[in-house]
């Protein structure tokens, strides 16, 4: 399976033109200070039996803003295609702002398609657990963020 790693913000269009083409798209973004980051990914299935797995993860700190826009388009006559889109953002500050827009446009029926999006912060329970083992708050946060991004 072809693996595409997104490194830069902006618009990325991934077209699946060959029947049976499979692709995995991964993007990890971290924002801090007053950064404004927008990532747009369009997965366009133009051939049958294509498969795409898209995962976008992000961590927003300070008063930064992070926006994920994902769009899956499956054209007509692209039967037996599958596409999955996941967008997850971890908010580490109250001033940070996050937005997820996972869109789907499905024009044929014989497909499997789903998306999931979530925005959350570090749970106080997780922090407490790690801090009770003697880690400082900073270390604990770092550990959780690393785990979130790597997983």
């Amino acid at each position: 399976m072809k693996k595409i790693i997104l490194k830069k913000p902006g618009k990325h269009v991934i077209e699946l033109k060959k029947p049976g083409e499979e692709v995995e798209v991964v993007g990890v973004f971290e924002t801090k200070d007053k950064e404004r980051v927008e990532v747009e990914v369009v997965i366009h299935h133009q051939a049958p039996r294509t498969l795409a797995n898209t995962t976008l993860k992000g961590v927003a700190r300070d008063s930064s803003s992070l926006k994920f826009m994902g769009l899956i388009i499956i054209d007509p006559d692209c039967g037996q295609s599958s596409s999955f889109l996941t967008e997850r953002i971890l908010l580490l500050s109250d001033q940070a702002h996050a937005e997820t827009i996972p869109d789907l446009e499905i024009l044929t029926d014989d497909v499997q398609c789903s998306h999931a999006a979530s925005i959350s912060n570090i749970s106080e329970k997780h922090l407490f657990y790690l801090m009770s083992r003697g880690l400082s708050k900073k270390q604990a946060e770092k550990l959780i963020v690393d785990g979130f991004l790597k997983n």
Binding site: L91, T100, P102, L104, I106, V111, Q112, C113, S114, H115, A116, A117, S118, I119, S120, N121
Partner: peptide, 10 residues
């Protein structure tokens, strides 16, 4: 906050 979104098409 906790915000979750899930969608499936079948």
């Amino acid at each position: 906050v906790e915000v979750q979104h899930e969608a499936t098409v079948s």
